[in-house]
Design a protein around this nucleic acid. Structure first.
Length: 716
RNA sequence: GCACCCUUAGCUCAGUUGGUAGAGCACACCCUUCACACGGGUGGGGUCAUAGGUUCGAGUCCUAUAGGGUGCACCA
């Protein structure tokens, strides 16, 4: 009567893989192949944030898989056409950095490789990781439609991205300009503002005699070529000096003639209120130089070494040169004083944490303000709803102060920028189908292919409509705008904001209606997981040990939208016990209930118990509709353990022994129907154990072979 | 500088629209009684950071203070 397997504790490892295979082979992951009992015609769509195909899935991936799978399974059971479209990200810079580390270990360097060779090696590496990663997504139970899977370097995606690039050019929102960029001397590429982080450092701040002035600086090594000295026009201390005044003075490598400038960018309260400027290596200085139409001179080369302008210091690394030139200035009597306790924020590369060296470089920039305005309007109009209110505010704050976006990267691993550069006039032209035939339309010079690639986020920002086949595929028409974008809160600007902006720009409509953001998964002590700290919790290992269902519950319960969570393996252990608890409830029911009559009338008590279940079902449904999976999961846990098992089952034992036939029939029906509903409600959270039990339940309770496509208890 | 968040049981955290505080782990004692020891039972432990305010009623709303944290943009 009771299947053999129920006589032993629940064994996730022996159960889960075959269930996934069963689901996948059913074809129901594909919304076009769902059973005809669909009751809701409107689609429910989630585009999966494509994981970077450069390593194993981490705890954050497990969290997003769980959240999105809950939403999708819920929608599917309610009868929506549920589409969860998976993908894999080539992750340009990220992957190239990973691969460079691998090269370093092998004693190789990308700078000694042919670009084509490097590209092919990274491609091979990425594709291997991609298929590995797809297996891991399956292990986590992701019920996504593999038949629609896309890779960010697929031709369709590139074509879409090129179309957007071209349109931006035509609309005057794209420009190529020599501007200050964030240059990483290690990775030899420019980075967007978002790819730099600030570190607080305490460094010496030097005061030097510069003619009649004392100037302050934390970066003496940039000062070789400084021949402009700037002060605020309203600064009375320097009222005697006038704009354009020439002053002869002694400087590092001999006498120079400096020119006085007045500019309101100067902070009178900082240092001495006087500074010299280095337009090539500082954004503020660059702006001042632009306003006064000054010359720009490069002092530091692309690898962080001083150029010939530094005289005897030429060729030296800037770090090495700094103390030496301070020493020289001291000998010349030009060092006034040193403040050793100067604390400031230093921009560094978010990957290698080397100091960013601002450099002037010709790059492609997107004018963001018009795009940002439309995105803000769409959010304010409610076309996109951002959870939580907190992130809504952060989103506004960033978009209201947006800066132009450098989308060029000097790396090979990415989508090539479809542009030609003129070797003669230095112009840059969007030229996707080689319509210019290698001749510069401006000066007639020879055109060469732009060697740069796009910032990954430029293509990722177009992911929702690129994956759905904009502009005329049936999928785009049916599934766009998508229902929810569920992703990590820390890529709100990198990705979410840009998807909204580019989606609106290209398609005229928002890419998704709702944004659900999850926080970072930290270790049990609240520390960020990292390989160097050795505190990484591998979701796959946890899944192997406790089961995927337990992992999913541990990730969900108590994890509110937008906040970080601490993941303690012991918590997951607790949910493994829960899976076993449900397993034993099933065993009890199957042992004690050989036949049920689902038309048997309920006793007064059982009628109440049944109503209680329906109230729970309504509650859970409301929670899921309103993106509160953490509450729904906890309620189901509580109901099954403390109400169903502890109360219902216990009070049923005497009924089965001494109750009247009517009482027994009522109770059997109650237990079975409440349990069946509980399994349905719990299925999105714990898909494996619920499915496994479901298929052993009496046929009279089931309308489908699989719980995955059963009807949700509450249909409205 | 601009913006934002957090402070609830020993620890890590929930608490959806305001109505006499919950989970996991940890702790104490008891129980292998026929669904389950991946179990059951009993129990200890919180004036919900502080001070005001709104309200019949506030962990939940408002103001201020203290402590902790985050994002963005910057000073040469």
């Amino acid at each position: 009567m009771v299947p053999e397997k129920f006589l032993k504790p629940y064994d996730p490892a022996a159960t889960e893989p075959s269930l996934y295979t069963q689901w996948e082979q059913s074809g129901f992951f594909n919304p076009d192949k769902l059973p005809d009992q669909i009751e809701r015609t409107e689609p429910f769509t989630i585009i999966m944030p494509p994981p970077n195909a450069n390593g194993s899935l981490h705890a954050g991936h497990a969290l997003f898989v769980t959240l999105q799978d809950i939403m999708i399974r819920f929608a599917r059971m309610r009868g929506n056409k549920a589409l969860w479209l998976p993908g894999a990200d080539h992750a340009g810079f990220e992957t190239q950095v990973v691969y460079e580390k691998k090269l370093e270990k092998e004693g190789r360097s990308r700078f000694e490789m042919e670009p084509r060779q490097l590209y092919n090696e990274i491609l091979e590496f990425t594709l291997a990781n991609k298929s590995f990663m797809e297996g891991q997504l399956r292990q986590l139970g992701a019920s996504c439609d593999w038949s629609r899977e896309l890779f960010t370097l697929d031709e369709r995606v590139i074509k879409t991205v090129y179309g957007t690039f071209k349109k931006l050019g035509e609309d005057g929102l794209l420009y190529r300009g020599k501007r200050i960029v964030n240059w990483c001397p290690k990775h030899q590429t420019s980075l967007s503002n978002l790819e730099t982080i600030y570190q607080t450092r305490t460094e010496p701040f030097y005061y030097f005699q510069y003619g009649p002035f004392v100037i302050g600086t934390s970066r003496p090594e940039t000062k070789f070529g400084d021949k402009y000295v700037v002060m605020h026009p309203d600064d009375e201390r320097y009222a005697q000096y006038s704009e354009g005044q020439k002053i002869d003075l002694e400087w590092i490598n001999g006498p120079i003639t400096a020119t006085v400038l007045k500019d309101e960018a100067i902070d009178m309260s900082f240092g001495t209120g006087v500074m010299t400027i280095t337009p090539w290596h500082d954004a503020t200085d660059f702006e001042i130089a632009k306003r006064h139409t000054l010359d720009y001179e490069q002092i530091i080369d692309w690898r962080g070494k001083l150029l010939p302008v530094a005289g005897e210091f030429a060729g030296m690394n800037i770090k090495e040169a700094r103390p030496k030139m301070v020493e020289k200035l001291k000998e010349k009597g030009l060092l006034v004083k040193i403040d050793e306790k100067y604390t400031h924020e230093v921009p560094v590369c978010y990957k290698c944490e080397r100091e960013i060296e601002p450099q002037i470089k010709a790059q492609w920039f997107v004018t963001m303000e018009p795009l940002a305005k439309k995105a803000l309007a769409a959010v304010d109009a409610g076309d996109v709803r951002i959870l939580t209110e907190n992130h809504n505010k952060i989103f506004h704050n960033w978009l209201e102060n947006i800066q132009d976006w450098n989308i060029s990267r000097q790396i090979v691993w990415g989508i090539p920028i479809p542009a030609k550069l003129c070797s003669k006039c230095d112009g840059g032209f969007v030229d996707i189908d080689d319509t210019m035939h290698g001749v510069c339309p401006k000066c007639g010079g020879k055109l060469v292919q732009d060697p740069d690639t796009f910032d990954t986020w430029f293509s990722s920002g177009q992911w929702p409509f690129a994956t759905l086949g904009y502009p005329d595929s049936p999928d785009f028409k049916e599934f766009y705008p998508t229902s929810v974008m569920e992703t990590a809160a820390d890529i709100l600007f990198f990705w979410v904001a840009r998807m909204i902006m580019l989606g609106l720009y290209r398609t005229g409509d928002v890419p998704f209606r709702n944004v659900y953001l999850h926080g970072i998964v930290r270790d049990a002590k609240g520390r960020k997981m990292s390989k160097s700290k050795g505190n990484v919790i591998s979701p796959l290992e946890v899944s192997n040990e406790y089961g995927t269902d337990a992992l999913r519950m541990g990730l969900i319960v108590g994890n509110t939208a937008g906040t970080d969570m601490n993941l303690d393996p012991r918590k997951i252990g607790a949910y493994k016990k829960f899976a076993n608890k449900i397993w034993n409830i099933a065993r009890f029911l199957l042992e004690n209930i050989d036949e049920i009559d689902i038309t048997a009338p309920f006793t007064a008590t059982d009628s109440e118990r049944r109503a209680q279940m329906q109230a729970i079902a309504q509650d859970v449904t409301d929670d899921l509709e309103n993106y509160r999976p953490y509450l729904a999961a906890e309620k189901l846990y509580h109901y099954l353990w403390d109400v169903f098992a502890s109360d219902l089952l216990e009070e049923s034992k005497p009924i089965f022994k001494t109750g009247t036939p009517e009482e027994v029939a009522s109770r059997k029906r109650l237990l079975m129907q409440n349990f069946a509903d509980s399994l349905k409600l719990l299925h999105p959270f714990m898909p494996f154990v619920t499915e496994e039990i479901w298929q052993s339940l009496p046929a009279v309770l089931r309308t489908q072979d699989m719980l995955m496509v059963e009807r949700w208890p509450i249909v409205k």
